[in-house]
Design a protein around this nucleic acid. Structure first.
Lengths: 226, 226
DNA sequence: TAGATTGTTAATCGATTAACAATC
DNA sequence: TAGATTGTTAATCGATTAACAATC
């Protein structure tokens, strides 16, 4: 694992797909794969795959290809999937519940250690194996447990308030499902936004303007389950 | 509204943000805005905004800027947000519930007309104002009501089975939250994938490799609530 | 009119693809 | 060895940014 500098987000966003696909192959018992085979299954070019992987190191062998297990492990390391970053989730609505379950059964580098809400309906219920706490206990909790990441499954206005509190408590990483733009206010944070509305509106555009051009622009976003 | 050919996905994916932001301005009572002002608020260049908008028409006035209300309406039309495409949702788990509520209060071009699940726990419950039906009634329902879009909030294997059924029933548009790759099998479909796992793994990478380069690559993805 | 800001063309930048020497 | 496939450099393509004439 050499280089690792100036890796563009275009490359980084393809890594999870590589990982997932390789993991699937590994489980299936495939031990070896060439960039060409991989490219066909992923709908990318072999060239791109080799370029991408070589941002991180030379994991293949000329004339042979890549060892599936080894490459999968390398990407796992690159992504930092065994980091177990301590994480809290704010907002125990349907989305929060879905995310909490999702995160608990997908060991993807994070460890959910607390869930908070301000609604009496939700406080005390269990989600993702954790009891929902009153948001009034957030500060003490953070000072004691020192989470480094927060998932925001709350409204825009709640997100705005919470971002300030969490930032002041030292949290710099956010998985943000709200419309509030954390990054604008706090440029030294790492924010991954999930904008469901945008995705849906984009789909609406694509359906409404169902021209060949619109369709062919979109790369097939292939996925393999893990 | 002229041109509308060869509009790249890069442009299309920015439209929802423009729309949301302009809508917010409109509500706030702002009537006029220049590309420069807009660019500052969105973290884009003025040039890019003008380029993007001019894919669809010349909506501005030299020396003046853009009329917020008019531009907002135009983008609304471009996106097709009043289409009310008849939509069904498959999978009434937490994610399905969250999505159903989301879609019902966001009039974003779709009209949810049915929700299906195969679990006796869920059948008969209400989500997003609709009663969850047994998936055994899916075929009859589709033949009668003719939905054109399906939201898949189910597991990979269920998605694989359902995609076939839905495709055979004539559905060609999917909002896909599963890992199953519909587009690979059915290339004449329009699929918008939401890959929560990928998003989370990308965040894990960014935290693990928290270099300046990794951070600056990512454009601030600013959002404004609507 | 003068100032401002668009629409659009040209220049730059970055990402993808092609090609091929290195080498297993 | 011969065949295959990588790692990497060069060429191409597309998207973003800069510049400026048009014009409100």
């Amino acid at each position: 694992m050499h280089k690792r500098e100036n890796v563009s987000m275009s490359v980084v966003r393809r890594l999870p797909r590589y990982y997932r696909f390789l993991h699937h192959l590994k489980v299936t018992g495939v031990t070896r794969i060439s960039s060409t085979e991989l490219s066909k299954k992923l709908g990318l070019t072999a060239s791109q795959i080799r370029q991408d992987l070589n941002c991180f190191g030379g994991f293949g062998q000329q004339g042979y290809g890549y060892m599936v297990g080894q490459l999968c492990d390398e990407i796992c390391k690159i992504l930092g999937l065994s980091s177990g970053y301590k994480t809290i989730l704010l907002g125990a609505g349907n989305l929060g519940r879905a995310i909490a379950n999702h995160m608990s059964f997908q060991a993807e580098g994070f460890q959910l250690i607390g869930v908070f809400d301000n609604s009496p309906d939700k406080i005390g219920t269990t989600i993702g194996g954790l009891t929902v706490s009153d948001v009034s206990g957030l500060e003490d909790f953070c000072k004691e447990r020192l989470p480094i990441m927060a998932v925001l499954c709350v409204s825009r206005s709640a997100a705005e308030q919470l971002a300030k509190i969490l930032y002041d408590l030292g949290i710099r990483n956010f998985w943000n499902f709200s419309h509030y733009d954390i990054y604008l206010k706090y440029p030294d944070t790492t924010v991954e936004n999930v904008h469901l509305n945008d995705s849906l509106m984009t789909l609406c555009y694509r359906i409404s303007n169902n021209s060949i051009s619109a369709k062919k622009e979109e790369k097939p976003e292939q996925q393999i389950s893990d």
